[in-house]
């Protein structure tokens, strides 16, 4: 399939996904389930990578601050800015594209090849909407919380590393974390997080939904889903940064 056919099909697919749910109560229950599956189950990985990244950023900054004119609090400041601007939105987005994306693509893909999607359709259910809309809503809802968690944990990681390695004092670090905070940067990153959440759920769903064949094709679709949603995240990052920070 050519690139443009793919885009056309993706847009038609989204139109099917975003339609009125069959039963409100069932839909709501689905969303709760997906929040748990996509959000709560990702807390662990987000915490682990954020703590390590925060720690590494603080150490790198400290070891690069050789000029005595530069104040120590820059370590805390840099850690915070890196987490807020780029790490907790884009890098976490990329990692979730791997974890959540492959999970969604293989779940939907295996439902396709085992005819579970046909089973929904024959009942008169819009399978695309039933299976995928709740995932998108759940991720768009929960990922901002993951973002905030990542920022918080990352800064804590940076603080702990600084303290343990003795690079800068705790009060200096904390002062750096508080200094010159621009709230708009958080809004900018939250907007990115929302867009990434949409990409991470809708793109893998798309690849899973149109699988045909067997287990092998499901695996291939899952790989494609992760690669393409990662590329889309990087692209969206570039565009949103130009639009929002100009």
């Amino acid at each position: 399939m050519s690139f443009f056919e793919n885009i056309g099909q993706y847009i038609l697919f989204l139109k099917r996904v975003v339609s009125k749910p069959e039963k409100g109560r069932v839909f709501f229950a689905q969303i709760i389930k997906e929040i748990y599956k996509l959000g709560v189950n990702s807390v662990g990985i987000v915490v682990i990578i954020s703590v390590f990244m925060g720690a590494v950023i603080s150490l790198q900054t400290a070891y690069n601050l050789v000029n005595p004119l530069l104040p120590d609090y820059l370590v805390g400041y840099t850690t915070r800015e890196s987490m807020i601007l780029e790490f907790s939105s884009t890098i976490v987005g990329l990692i979730l594209a791997g974890k959540v994306g492959s999970n969604i693509a293989s779940e939907i893909g295996s439902m396709r090849v085992t005819e579970q999607i046909d089973a929904l359709e024959i009942m008169g259910i819009n399978s695309a909407s039933y299976l995928i809309f709740p995932k998108i809503i759940a991720a768009v809802f929960i990922n901002p919380f993951l973002y905030v968690l990542s920022v918080f944990v990352g800064i804590t990681g940076g603080l702990m590393a600084s303290y343990m390695a003795g690079t800068v004092s705790v009060p200096d670090f904390i002062y750096g974390v508080q200094v010159d905070l621009i709230p708009y940067y958080i809004i900018y990153s939250l907007i990115k997080t929302l867009v990434f959440a949409f990409i991470i759920t809708s793109v893998p769903s798309f690849y899973g939904y149109y699988v045909s064949g067997g287990a092998l094709e499901v695996g291939k679709a899952s790989t494609k889903a992760v690669v393409n949603s990662s590329i889309l995240i990087l692209l969206a990052n570039l565009i949103l940064t130009q639009l929002l920070l100009k």
Partner: peptide
């Protein structure tokens, strides 16, 4: 419809599978 491989929803238990169309319709 009974599909070739059964096509039961694998995230639902046996009784939830049978209950599913009732919940929906």
């Amino acid at each position: 419809m009974v599909f070739q491989g059964g096509a039961l929803f694998d995230s639902l238990s046996v009784e939830e599978n049978v209950k599913f169309p009732l919940d929906m319709f």
